[in-house]
Amino acid sequence: MIQYIMSAGSDILKNFIFFSKTMILIIPFVFVLIGLFEVWVKRETIEKHLGNESDLMGYFWAILLSMTTVGGVFVAFPIAYSLFKKGAALSVVFTYIGASAVCRIPMTVFEASLFGLKFTIIRLSVSLPLVIISSILLGRYLKSKKYEINEA
């Protein structure tokens, strides 16, 4: 019994150390970039391209940015907050969050090479439009409720 618990503990610890290492290699760098973004990028720039007055290009930029997101939700939410704070529209921010789940570049390339391009094209052409549509609906509803994204 004791032996069993010991081996379980060491397996869990191994997992934990492995994840922590990967996180330490990614998270601090991303947060430095977020810091630079908040200090250097003007609010007007974000408002113009990603704000409520931006047209369809706002969604295009959000998806392009999401493709480069490394580290999944750990990184997507802090970035989403910074975008929101700088004046990006809620629908654009939610598009960014959703798209960062479905079309990160390394993942998509791996998937296409393993399952075939057909698989990836089906997945993206179904999920991306649904992400954009649901984000627009959610954004509109929440805007009327004066909703805000928190800084964790």
């Binding site: 998270i27 601090p28 947060f31 430095v32 977020i34 810091g35 630079l36 908040e38 200090v39 250097w40 802090p78 800084e151 964790a152």
Partner: peptide
């Protein structure tokens, strides 16, 4: 100055989560 501010923002945000 701005760079140090950016690093400070990064540390603050990281501490929070």
């Amino acid at each position: 100055k701005k760079t140090f501010l950016a690093l400070k923002v990064a540390v603050k945000k990281m501490k929070a989560v």
